[in-house]
Amino acid sequence: MSESDHKTRMAQLEGRLAAARKAQEPGPRKDEHYSQANMAWRMVTELVAGLGIGASLGFGLDTLAGTAPFGIVVFTLLGFAAGVKVMLRTATEIQRSQAAEAAARDEKG
């Protein structure tokens, strides 16, 4: 085998290796606005925050007015309702954004 034949084969091998490396490279990362876990934690946090704020307001009202169980029960229920409302609004927002992303993908493909 001659020297030029060896160099040609090495160049071909390097070209194939470069092509293989290029094929193995990960593509650009798609910007996922929300992962499933992030969505779930956001909704849980909103619900717990509503409950906590309602219970705190109820406890404060009970302490100031002396209406022991009434305020905390009523405001905890109101906080729960507010938390569920915010949670549903977030779910609708996320659903709309995912539908828009799916429509954009369908237009491309």
Results as ranks from 00 to 15, higher is better:
A37Q: 09
A100E: 12
M87S: 10
S4D: 11
T67K: 10
S35F: 06
Q24W: 12
V44Q: 04
K85H: 11
V73Q: 02
A65R: 04
G109D: 10
Q98R: 13
A11K: 11
A102M: 07
R89M: 10
S97F: 00
G71Q: 03
A37N: 10
Q24S: 15
A102H: 02
Q12D: 13
F70Q: 05
A99R: 07
D5H: 07
E14W: 04
R105K: 12
K22H: 13
R29Y: 12
M43K: 13
A91W: 10
R21D: 15
S97C: 00
S2K: 08
V74Y: 05
R105F: 06
G58N: 02
L61G: 01
M1Q: 06
A68E: 10
I53D: 02
L57Y: 13
G15K: 11
E32Q: 14
K22R: 14
E46Q: 15
V86K: 12
R42P: 00
R42E: 03
R89H: 04
I94M: 13
L47H: 00
L17F: 12
A11S: 11
V86W: 09
A65Y: 01
A19V: 08
R29C: 07
A49S: 14
P26S: 15
M1V: 10
Q36P: 02
N38F: 06
E3I: 03
G71D: 04
F59S: 11
S35N: 13
R96W: 03
L17T: 06
